[in-house]
């Protein structure tokens, strides 16, 4: 059996498995390498944190209290959001595509209209799914990424992305339209790259995602959308 590499040695430090333990028992070289990893990681244990006194919890509460909003009970539509996101996306897509336009007259004009809720649900779902794929690509290497699967997911997301971008444009929401536009370009790149992606190309894609701060933008917008949804 070949020797354990650094990643396996680090893994063995945090969560030793039987296989690496067995290997090290019979291999002085790997045992020595592991001991070195162990020494280094043990030495990093000491990360001093400034003391907080026994009254600290009370101080935090005092600062927090004026900022607390009243607690809201979950609304029926929010439960729908939590329980049936796939259905919600379908509904939203149907709506955005104009299939429900004949009912629009009844919906618009009411405060926090159904249309807005439905769009928020779809947007939330879309951003959460996009965030997962972006994070995976941004943090993965060619060795760990299942790139063909990411491509499939990117293709799935593209249709929703286009519809949501069009809806944002129609509603004059320039910020969402521009975020979705950026997202669409990255999703297109992922979808259209070769399935066997060379590391150099992956790095270029990762740099692009990084430089645009896209994961963060999507995360922030996603949490805004979720928060707005709860306030409706």
């Amino acid at each position: 059996m070949s020797h354990l590499d650094e990643e396996q040695l680090v893994e063995a430090y945090y969560a030793p498995d039987e296989q690496s333990r067995m290997h090290m028992r019979g291999c002085p070289e790997c045992r020595a390498a592991f001991e070195r990893v162990q020494e280094h990681l043990d030495a990093l244990r000491d990360y001093p944190v400034p003391e907080r006194g026994p009254g600290y919890g009370g101080e935090v509460w005092k600062r927090l209290l004026p900022q607390l909003p009243p607690v809201r009970k979950p609304r029926a539509w929010l439960r729908l959001w939590l329980m049936a996101p796939a259905f919600a996306t379908l509904l939203a897509m149907a709506f955005v595509a104009g299939m429900l336009t004949q009912r629009k007259a009844q919906l618009v004009g009411t405060p926090a209209s159904t249309r807005e809720r439905v769009l928020l649900i779809a947007m939330n779902r879309h951003l959460e799914r996009s965030q997962i794929i972006l994070s995976e690509i941004a943090n993965g290497s060619t060795a760990v990424l299942d790139f063909p699967r990411e491509q499939e997911r990117a293709r799935d997301l593209l249709d929703d992305n286009r519809l949501l971008r069009q809806a944002a444009l129609r509603d004059g929401d320039a910020a969402d339209a521009s975020l979705l536009d950026e997202l669409e370009r990255v999703l297109l790149d992922v979808a259209n790259s070769p399935a066997e992606m060379p590391s150099r190309d992956l790095e270029a894609l990762q740099n692009r995602i990084d430089n645009e701060g896209l994961v963060f933008k999507v995360r922030v917008r996603s949490s805004d959308v979720r928060f707005k949804g709860q306030q409706l």
């Binding site: 650094e6 990643e7 680090v10 280094h40 997962i132 995976e136 943090n139 993965g140 290497s141 760990v144």
Partner: peptide, 23 residues
């Protein structure tokens, strides 16, 4: 982190690797 387990594991490893080199 909102990522797959493999990506999380790899992030831990890359952090350890960089810290070992830097130290």
């Amino acid at each position: 982190l909102g990522v797959q387990a493999n990506a999380a594991k790899h992030s831990v490893f890359r952090a350890v690797q960089k810290l070992r080199r830097a130290l």
